[in-house]
Design a protein around this nucleic acid. Sequence first.
DNA 1: CATCCACAGGAAGATCTGGTAG
DNA 2: CTACCAGATCTTCCTGTGGATG
Length: 409
Amino acid sequence: MGESIFQQYMRKRNNIVKNRKILQNTHIPEQLPHRKEQIDKIASVISIALSGEKPSNIMVYGKTGTGKTATLHYIGKELKKADPKEMNCSFIYVNCEVVDTPYGVLYNIGNQVTVDPGQKIPFTGWSFEKVYSVLVDMIDNEDKVYVVVLDEIDRMVFKKGDDIFYYLTKINENLKKSKVSLVGISNDMKFLELLEPKARSRLGGESLVFPPYSKLELEDILQERADIAFDPNSIDKSVIPYCAAIAARVDGDARIALDLLRTAADIAERNGDSVITDAHVKSAKNSIEFDVVSEAIKTLSSQSKVVLMSIMLISEKELKMTTGDVYTKYSEISDYCGLSRLTQRRVTDLISELDMMGIINASVKSFGCAGRTKEIELSVPKEMCSLLKNDPLFKNLDRSVRTGQTKLI
DNA sequence: CATCCACAGGAAGATCTGGTAG
DNA sequence: CTACCAGATCTTCCTGTGGATG
């Protein structure tokens, strides 16, 4: 009586993790192991911002989880330490994967520049030119250097937002007092080639590459955080090398290594175990993979769900299929679900999207006289399909359609 | 070696959503 | 209310193409 339902869980939890925040991949540690060279290089370029001069633009390349974002956040923190009141220099960070439109980038920068709420740029409604000129005014209000970091900058070009870079690189020509220095972070080494030439020549200044972490470097990174996050007795010696080994196989991605360690600790705690073991890491690996895919499937648009459902139903009988097969099945199901039927052109795009998300595998292949089309194959385990079948969208889908017994096929 | 299938995928533009501005 | 804006979504129209087949 009177006991909260949560108390049983709290008693069961034996708190292996002392400091959970340390294990989040958003956490910026005091020291970034094995990134001294890159930090020095960037710092040496950026440092003149502190005396009010404009540093060259910088391009940073490296695969996911190689510490690019963490390094830049670290630089930002150090800049703030050197100039706490931001008299000469402000640091602005925008993640282009999150904001992802030209308007959104300007909006985001603008609302980090200004402190005056009456000056805020609205979320939508203004013309691009207006936002740009307001932003220029805001920046020129002061007399200082803005270091603007554009993370995942390659996503923007991919989404056809080329001219935003043109505008940002020429912004200094419209400024009288302040200056803007750009730092672009890209996962793709070919980023500059994809850019329009006029923006390319302006954006390219210094450039540097973050190599993937080796297995041993990953171990250092994990060890450093584990020392703070866990009691040394609550983690098996083999756990850190094991996490590092898995992540090293995926392009030395430190984010994956940290996710594994954190999830393994969570699982151990939830089970009421007192020590984290390799077995926990193994189930962490499965659980992460499952979560990523199921989250992706849940957030698909209705039309994409129907396309994926079609692929799943066909693959119950046939492993591989063509765009035409999918479209036939798609037409049938979308009618059943009461959705409007999209054109085949649009469905090919939806198939390509599913391919890029890694849920399916689709590659163009020529079958001679049987034409040239995409060969499509499900690339997640069959068990994932049940997730989709329970979706309210398909609750009226009758069994004959599900099992492919209809004459329509 | 030309043909021809069954699409791929680019370009341009229409439609819709959710917002500002006057 | 109308006029307008950016962006997502989708359509219409289109040209391009790898390789088995005749």
